[in-house]
Design a protein around this nucleic acid. Structure first.
Lengths: 299, 299
DNA sequence: TTGAAAGCGCTAACAG
DNA sequence: CTGTTAGCGCTTTCAA
């Protein structure tokens, strides 16, 4: 282009304070260059960290990012799918709230929208998840080594994949030693349900040495329930969590837990999305974080 | 419309699996019906809760919501302003990372985009904030009543409005009793800086009875620094926070802090935005949350 | 009540 | 290298 013309154009841009309108561009190019991140609860640090990881990758590729919060509800999730269809996003990093609506998902996929599952695996979708089963098994092996033998397990809703994987790793590790858990209880992944389930177990099950929780928040709730019954942690009762969210390291005694790389999970999911991956599950390793909420159990 | 025609249209919609394209609609109507929420750090539960409050209101009005994360950087913030200009969002709920770029902001406003500040007041913008000064003064009065007299204060960057307001409330309450703080230190609003500033104070300032922190995260860092020097909380040293984020209630001893209604802040900011408010600051009340990290100080 | 036409701001294709 | 034109899918307006 002639330098003079270029200068005149640049001058006009400045003068009019011109910014290209993305909507018009998207309409003409038939590409919105927008992707969405759909999570169950953005105010949960685990998911917001995951969303951050995903957004960082999208941002580098010049894509706009829409963060949608399904508020732990499949119905809200469905509403969001409608919006995303109307927005014509090109892809979605998806953390399902529970068992996702297969019909909606099919419609989205038929429209050519790529969807990658993150953290929680969805049948028929490519995805990135943490090695929950192994992480849970390693944790359990560590607890067995410490000398714990009488276990109770509290966790989230049964229909969530990560809940089942963690439970399975736990049970398999126990089976190797010929041990059965004294109790297994399901609730929501909240502080309140952690408290309630632990309280119920402590008052109805004899001789529990340790409560293994499906996530950190439940573990903290359980610890509180133990305290309220006058039990000291780890002296009278061991407690473990899962996720290694920020506060797991802030509470005293520091929680024994398993780190799930939330940011990396989001990052990897978005990378899979941008590479156009259509299938396959990538599994990221977890890491055992020993804390002072468990201690060697002399026998 | 004739019922028969209507039926035929509905039939066609079903058959083609038709969803109206928002981009085309936005282009024609010259209204994108999209708003943005721009926060410093979405992985901070305080901001994600605020974002949730704002999004909930927008959602009810059928607006699309774009959540943008400036990663605590004014430069990233500026990049986001460009995107938002190009996206032609109709409004922005804005929590500035530091001192916002006035030029960018002017450009955005000149384009007719409404901006409402949340949590942190911005000159020339309507906004919603918490009554930080009073909340801080009330907290300080409570501490004086407990018998504390020798105070140290650690907080975030000086250019952040909430930092200055909280510090001011603190200082004014002390002045009424003719007391000067022994130390005031600024850093980032992080666990690490809370630890570092507290450690520095404890090793260089004589006779500090209590460390008042500008937010909860710094308070937890300070508590750790105290522990590492063998000081028991609250016996040897009192500690207080600000915000009342989730973990403030989970740590032991429970943190004495001031609740900032993050969700309500976001909600109110979005309401102001939708009402088309052009100026004025709304102030929401805070609430003192006494905890066990402070205790009556016999003299 | 229905149909037809124009045009939002952009890009791709093509002509000069 | 520059200018012109058509058309993305919708809404608005006007005509039948």
């Amino acid at each position: 282009m002639r330098p003079e013309t270029k200068a005149r154009v640049l001058e006009a841009i400045r003068e009019l304070d011109y910014t290209p309108a993305k909507v018009a561009r998207a309409l003409r190019k038939r590409r919105t260059e927008a992707i969405a991140i759909l999570v169950p609860d953005i105010s949960n640090p685990f998911f917001s960290l995951l969303a951050r990881g995903a957004a960082a990758v999208a941002y580098r590729s010049g894509l706009s990012t829409l963060i949608c919060d399904s508020n732990n509800s499949t119905e809200t999730e469905d509403l969001h799918w409608e919006t995303l269809l109307a927005e014509e996003v090109e892809g979605v990093v998806f953390v399902p709230a529970g068992r996702p609506n297969a019909g909606k998902l099919q419609r989205v996929l038929r429209r050519g929208i790529r969807v990658v599952a993150a953290d929680r695996v969805v049948e028929g979708l490519p995805g990135v998840r943490a090695d929950n089963r192994r992480g849970s098994a390693e944790l359990t092996a560590y607890l067995l080594e410490l000398g714990y033998r009488r276990f109770a397990y509290i966790t989230g809703p049964e229909e969530v994949g990560t809940v089942r994987e963690r439970l399975r790793g736990f049970q398999e590790a126990l089976e190797q030693e010929g041990i059965e858990p004294l109790a297994v209880r399901h609730g929501e992944f909240t502080y309140e349900d952690g408290y309630a389930l632990a309280a119920e177990i402590l008052s109805s099950v004899e001789g529990v040495e340790i409560i293994v929780a499906g996530n950190d928040l439940m573990a903290i709730g359980a610890r509180r329930a133990a305290e309220d019954r006058g039990l000291a942690v780890p002296r009278d009762l061991g407690i473990t969590g899962f996720d290694n969210v920020l506060f797991a390291g802030l509470v005293r005694p520091r929680l024994t837990t398993v780190e799930i790389p939330a940011f990396a999970l989001g990052k990897a999911a978005m990378e899979l999305l941008l590479e156009g991956e259509r299938e396959g599950i990538r599994t990221l390793p977890t890491r055992l974080i020993p804390g002072a909420s468990t201690a060697p159990k002399g026998r």
